[in-house]
Computed example of a mutant assay.
Amino acid sequence: MHQPDVRPATRGDVPRVVRTLVRAFADYPFTRHTISADDHVRRLERFNELFVSRIGLEHGRVWVADDGDAVAVWTTPDTAGAGDVFADLGPEFAEIAGDRAKASEEAEAAMAPHRPTDPVWFLGSVGVEPDRQGEGLGAAVIRPGVDEADRAGVPCFLETSDERNVRFYRRLGFEVTAEYTLPGGGPRTWAMRRHAGG
């Protein structure tokens, strides 16, 4: 079986990983609900470019597998200043959301009570090229973040709006901590947490 080549991402990986994330999230219920259908692919590209380059690479951790066929973007307890960056990017994220800006705000408000208040490694985004899904790339690209969180004695957290992902994340040691439907006709969403050490 192919052993994925996993390494920390660099700035040079951004175009490739953005392409992977756009393909992986093309029909994802959450982004379809929170980002305008008008010019959706371009909006999704810009959102992922900002998230990877301004949040993940500058304030968190990003790993790629097989030169970008899979990517995992984390924020960590050491992420200093990410809150300010999210605030600075707020107007641009609202512009990206377009006519779904209100739905995006409502979704964030609905998710907030289910997010941890203690220090965690937060898996903000993970994507695998659609034609490579099922090859173990997703687990391989997530594993370095989980391992680092374990070494630090810190739990991991994520959110997903695709029920098929729940079983996948459970295999990595995550358990559902909340299940709820986003307002305004939004998708069912699961909050999941993995205790340090599995």
Rank of each mutant, 00 (worst) to 15 (best):
R167D: 14
A112F: 02
G185F: 04
L158W: 03
V73E: 08
D69E: 14
G198M: 03
A24I: 04
W190K: 03
E105D: 13
R143N: 05
T160A: 09
Y180G: 03
L182R: 07
D131C: 10
M192W: 04
G60P: 12
S53L: 12
P4N: 07
V52C: 06
F122M: 07
T34E: 07
V6I: 10
V17P: 10
Y169D: 09
L172N: 04
R54Y: 04
E148V: 08
A37T: 13
R188M: 08
S161H: 01
D88T: 10
D78S: 13
G81A: 07
R167A: 15
G184D: 07
V146H: 00
G124S: 13
H2E: 06
D147R: 11
R167G: 12
E135R: 11
E49R: 13
S104I: 00
F122D: 15
A24C: 05
E129F: 00
F25M: 10
Y28C: 07
E45H: 15
L158V: 02
V41R: 15
S161C: 11
P4S: 09
K102D: 15
P187C: 04
R32D: 13
V17G: 11
R61H: 14
A191R: 02
T189K: 04
W74A: 09
S104P: 00
A112I: 00
T31S: 15
V18I: 12
G60Y: 09
D27L: 00
A37Y: 06
F25I: 02
R143I: 02
T75M: 08
R171H: 07
A37W: 12
E49N: 06
A94D: 14
P29W: 03
V62D: 14
L158T: 10
H114A: 10
L50C: 12
A65V: 06
G68K: 05
R170L: 05
V17E: 13
R194I: 08
S104F: 09
A110F: 11
G127T: 05
R43T: 10
A139Y: 02
S36T: 15
P183V: 01
L89P: 02
S36Q: 09
D66V: 11
H33L: 11
L158R: 01
V126Y: 02
A112H: 10
L172A: 08
V166E: 11
S125C: 13
